[in-house]
Amino acid sequence: MPVDQRFEATLAAPFSVSGRGLHTNRFARVTVAPAPPGHGIRFDVAGAGAVGLSHENRAPSRLNTALRLPDGTTLRTIEHLAASLSAFGVDNALVRIEGREMPIFDGSARDWCAAITQAGIAIQTSSRRMLRITQPIQVAMGQRFVRAEPAAALELDVTCESYYAGGVQAWRGSPTDKVFVTELAASRSSGQVSRLWTFGPVTNRLMAPLLRPIGRQTAVERTGEPAANAAWPDLPTALTDEIRAGMAHPRGEPVLRGVRPGRAAIQIGPWVLGGARFPDERVRHNALDLLGDLTLAGRPLVGRIVAHRPTHKLTYAFVATLMQSPDAYEVVEA
């Protein structure tokens, strides 16, 4: 969001885009339109009804963030648009969709940012109400965790281990509109080629040497490598049964059917097909997804969000736990 934004904002004009989904490979048409103050971000799906962007409306889904629609179906892969709207400080918008999954484009948020920039931002008359973190709160699962700490503005501090390339990647900063566009938006969803597609035995043998991870003992010596963020052991995780149920993966839903070169960063061992856009593209996309998933809180956050290897379901669990912990935040006017 813009650093000094005190009032709610919407788009100055509507825009429309279209494309295929990452998981379903189905085509969708999307129009994002201005909305009045207090409206929030709402998704209106043709034939399925409208729903607000909230952790209460989030639906379990694998490798993406989805919303449960009034007819019982889901709208998948909303996180890239949600992150882009958040970074540009858009509080109110009506998103109309013909389809059940948002377009993935090239796997990044670059096209969403371009469309928002062209549409423009309109500042509204209502004061912005935000969630300010008042005390640390954390959700951890093994080495993965998301933690919020008090801070004067929204800050992200994200690390991940680059298993195949060796070492730790880190991105730390405030995701303002300018920072988001220049540092995060172009980073892409990624996956190992061996996990995306099935090959025959001959191809598997030929590819095996390429898929071996580069261990620390054989990697080129790195200087100044960042340290991985660590969970606070004295800040325990207490998930309700309802939140745990929301973290389960549904059976039978299509996954990664739309992956193609040009729609994601396809990794072959430590290499990216066609080249990486950033040396640390993976952690930058982790930060992008984290920002999008944090919008499930329903209001802009003010606080420092620290995470290591965050996933969509872990961030959902964090947001849901935060919203059930009134001592950890307060609603304030910007």
Rank of each mutant, 00 (worst) to 15 (best):
L156R: 02
V158G: 06
S126P: 01
G142H: 08
A165R: 03
V139T: 09
V139W: 01
A148D: 05
T134V: 10
A152C: 08
R144T: 10
A115M: 14
Q135L: 01
L154I: 13
C160G: 13
A115S: 15
R129F: 04
D111I: 14
T125D: 08
A151K: 11
V139G: 00
Q124N: 12
F145R: 04
G120D: 03
I133S: 09
R144L: 01
E161V: 09
A122P: 03
Q135F: 01
I121H: 00
R132L: 02
G120T: 15
I123A: 02
G120L: 09
R132T: 11
L131Q: 07
A122K: 09
I123H: 01
D157V: 09
Q124E: 12
G142S: 12
L131C: 10
S127T: 11
S162H: 10
M141T: 14
A115H: 11
M130P: 04
A148P: 08
D157Y: 05
A165H: 00
M130G: 05
V146M: 06
A165G: 07
G120Q: 13
E149K: 05
R110K: 10
L131K: 10
T134G: 02
C113V: 15
T134P: 00
S127N: 05
Q118S: 11
Y163W: 14
R128M: 14
E161C: 00
F145S: 05
F145K: 04
S126I: 13
Q143C: 04
V146N: 05
E161K: 00
C160N: 13
I133L: 06
Y164T: 14
L154G: 14
Q143N: 11
R147K: 08
T159S: 10
A115P: 07
V146L: 05
D111W: 05
A165Q: 03
V139N: 01
A140S: 14
A122C: 05
M130N: 03
L154M: 12
T159Q: 11
C113L: 15
A153R: 09
Q138D: 07
A109S: 15
L156N: 04
Q143K: 08
E149A: 03
A114V: 13
I116T: 07
P150W: 07
P136N: 15
A148G: 15
L156M: 04
P136G: 12
V158T: 15
I137L: 14
A109C: 13
R129L: 04
A114T: 11
R110H: 15
Y164N: 11
R110M: 10
A148S: 14
S162A: 15
M141N: 13
A152Y: 07
Q138M: 12
I116S: 04
T134F: 00
T125G: 04
I116M: 01
A119P: 07
E149S: 08
I123M: 00
Q118C: 04
A109K: 15
S127L: 09
A153K: 04
R129H: 14
D111A: 12
E155T: 08
G120M: 13
L154K: 09
I123Q: 02
C113A: 12
G120N: 10
I121Y: 01
E149G: 06
A114C: 01
V146Q: 03
C160T: 14
S126C: 02
A122I: 05
I137G: 03
A114F: 00
A115Y: 02
T125Q: 07
I121W: 03
A119E: 07
M130Q: 15
M141F: 07
C113Y: 03
D157W: 01
V158A: 07
A148M: 10
R128D: 03
A148Y: 05
Y164D: 11
Q135G: 02
